[in-house]
């Protein structure tokens, strides 16, 4: 008999749940990003400071997203 963890991992619901979590994270990320950009533009007079903040924020987020997508695909395979 299979270990319960193998049964859980092979269930189609697991893939859907993980994909759903990724979509939810993407929506959450977009909403918060809009809010952050609004605050940076409204209260920070220096464009170069806004640019570097956006660059660091988006760069870090991209790394985490790419990592998550990569492991989701390797799980599906």
């Amino acid at each position: 008999m299979d270990h319960p963890i193998i049964a859980m991992l092979s269930s189609p619901y697991t893939v859907r749940t993980l994909a759903g979590a990724l979509v939810f994270s993407l929506i959450f990320f977009l909403i918060i990003s809009v809010m952050l950009f609004y605050h940076w533009r409204k209260y920070e007079p220096s464009n170069s400071r806004i640019f570097s903040s956006v660059l660091i924020y988006l760069g870090g987020s991209a790394i985490f997203f790419i990592g998550a997508v990569y492991f989701l695909f390797s799980f599906i395979k």
Binding site: S61, F64, F65, F71, L72
Partner: peptide, 13 residues
Amino acid sequence: SAVYFICFLWALF
């Protein structure tokens, strides 16, 4: 893979 996926999403949050 599933755990690393969760780790990356957690780090994103």
